[in-house]
Every structure is written in structure tokens, then in C-alpha cells.
Amino acid sequence: MSEKPETSGQSVGTRWPELIVAAVLMLLAVLVIVDSLRVGIGWAEDGPRSGYFPFYIGVLLLLSSGSVLIGQLLRWRRDDPEFAERGQIALVIAVLVPMAVYVGLIALLGIYLASLALIAYFMRRHGRYGWPLTGAVSVGVPLFFFIVFERWFLVPLPKGPIENLLGF
């Protein structure tokens, strides 16, 4: 996100996020319209074709997000309300990245070990807890879910090599 000289340096304005979201929505609208045209937006013998309804959805999406985009461009030189402070964005990313890693780990290790790692990471990194409490919570919670889902309700959750070794 490029920082404009007139912003205070500590915060990021809504200008660019606004523009990017509107542009992505317009792109999605184009995807919807293009594919609707492909499957047909007119009538077949048996009634409206598949693209009949989505086409207008796409057009409305394009118009509404387009107007947001144009409105933003018109307002470009004027005030730029704060989107978030830099520190806040850093915090959001500090949560988002571990979340993505967590989902990746679920695929690799199964949900129980991945959850253990996620909870332990959060408690150590953000909560600055000592190892005993961190260990108790991060082992206890996945164990609780294991008992609830696999034992009581018989809903299988993703498991990895370790669970396989233990025979589940």
C-alpha cells in the first residue's frame, strides 16, 4: 500500500483499499457477465437460459462497484479518512499469517496437532503466558474437541500421521 505524503505516516488511508476492493468487485462482475454470455442470456425453447438471471446480477454489480470506484477517484484529492493505523494492520497480519499456516497444517498434520500449535503460538506470542499454562490450554482444548467429535458425536475430523500411528 503506497503511503501518500499528506497522510500522517502512522496510518493508512481508505483511499487505496477502497479503490482495490471496488476494482476487484468490478473484475468479478466482468467474470460473471462473460460467463453468463457464454451460457446464454436469452431464451431457449424451454425458457430462460442459465445466464439470464446472473447476467443482470453481473451488470448491477459492475454498475454499483463502478460507481464506488468513480466516487473514490473523484474524491481523490480531498480528505482521506483513516483505514487503520500501521500498528493495527501489523496486528491483523500477525493473526492472518498464523491462520493461513494453521489451515495449511490441518492438511498436513490433522486438525488436532495443528490446533495445539495455533493455540500455543497465540498464547506465547500474543499473551506471553508461561509454558505450564500454555501447555495445559493448548493440549486440553484439542483433546476436548477430540472427545466431543470423535467419541461422542462420531463426526470424523481431519487427522494426520500421528493419529494414524496411535491407531485412530
Binding site: V95, V103, I111, M123, V137, F149
Partner: peptide, 17 residues
């Protein structure tokens, strides 16, 4: 910092099931 990861885990379980 304790509740957040637990909520993420619950959401992931919910989405998966």
C-alpha cells in the same frame, strides 16, 4: 490471546464438518 485461537479452531472445525 486465549479466546482468539480457540474461536479460529472452532470455526475451522465448523467449516470442515
Amino acid at each position: 490471546s486465549v479466546i482468539a485461537p480457540v474461536i479460529i479452531v472452532i470455526c475451522a472445525i465448523g467449516a470442515y464438518t
